[in-house]
Simulated scan of single mutants.
Amino acid sequence: MKKLIAGVVLGVGLTAMAHGAGDPQAGEQNAAVCAGCHGQGGAKPVMGVYPKLSGLGEKYLYRQLVAIKSKERNIPEMTGILDNMSDQDLQDLAAYFDSQEMVVSQADPDLVDQGSALYRGGNLATGVPACAGCHNPQGNGNAPAGYPALGGQNAEYLTKQLKAYREGTRNAGSNAAIMMDVASKLTDAEIEAVSSYISGLN
């Protein structure tokens, strides 16, 4: 009897997990509207201030889509785009974009040394932790924790987001407090250097 109960519990648990997971093929059907700004597969945005969505991590992407739809994270350019999408649609979109390959950008050679030092070692003097601690030495992120892959992301977008965290205008989501604290200790020059370095990281 115990084995039967355990089997039922396990089966229900696996069904729930499968139901909650996104379907990349279904997500691709809804992704056409995203291509106008983020490019095909979310890999080549039309402007540097728009993020690449490809390969960021399904959990992270889903959380951001939920926050944007609920207006917890306010992005004027996204107004109304997600309104008619269900929670499953958002899961599917997240799975689709996560399955796409990140196109790595080119870091500014003049900023690589400073950016690398910050990304890999932080700044002990000002209490800035190493970005690699959460986002992986190669910039691949930490999918189970919902920390996004950063390697290859547009430097202009990264700069904008770090400044938004520093100013407290990006404060939505479970990990925002961590990033707001980190960014509050970064100078403009450090933000520029680490953003450039990350854009070429792979």
Rank of each mutant, 00 (worst) to 15 (best):
R63L: 12
G115D: 02
Y119N: 11
D89T: 08
G139F: 11
A130G: 15
A18K: 02
R166D: 07
G146S: 11
A189F: 08
K160I: 06
M85A: 09
D89W: 03
I68A: 13
G141F: 15
A172H: 01
V104G: 06
T79E: 09
G13P: 12
A6S: 13
A18F: 03
L201E: 10
D98P: 04
A132C: 04
N123V: 04
L150E: 01
V182E: 04
A193F: 00
V9A: 09
Y147F: 06
A176Y: 10
L118G: 12
Y96E: 01
Y96Q: 05
R120A: 04
G173I: 00
V12P: 06
Y147A: 15
Y165A: 07
A149W: 11
K69E: 05
Q114E: 15
L61R: 13
K71I: 13
A132R: 04
A193S: 04
K71T: 14
A94W: 11
V112T: 15
E167T: 08
V9H: 00
E77L: 12
A31N: 04
Y62W: 08
Q91G: 09
N84E: 06
G11W: 05
N74S: 12
L118A: 14
T169P: 11
K71N: 15
A6F: 14
A67L: 02
G80S: 01
A143C: 07
A189D: 10
Q161C: 10
N171G: 03
Q64N: 13
I68E: 05
D108P: 03
L162Y: 14
A149E: 02
A172Q: 00
S86K: 02
P137F: 01
T159L: 01
S174F: 12
L186V: 14
E72I: 12
Q161H: 00
D188H: 03
L118F: 14
G22K: 03
C134V: 14
L158G: 07
L90I: 13
R73I: 08
C131G: 13
P137W: 08
K2G: 15
G13Q: 02
Y157G: 11
Q91H: 14
G41Y: 07
A6K: 14
N136W: 00
R170G: 06
V112F: 06
G57W: 07
E101V: 05
K2T: 15
G36R: 12
V8G: 09
G133R: 08
S54H: 00
V66K: 00
P24G: 03
V49Q: 02
T126L: 13
N30L: 12
A32D: 14
Q100C: 08
A125L: 07
Q114W: 06
A26P: 03
L61Y: 12
L124N: 10
E190R: 02
M78G: 12
D87A: 13
H19I: 13
Q29N: 13
G139E: 05
K163W: 13
E192F: 02
L4W: 11
N123S: 10
S116D: 08
N30W: 06
G173S: 05
T79R: 11
P76R: 05
S184L: 14
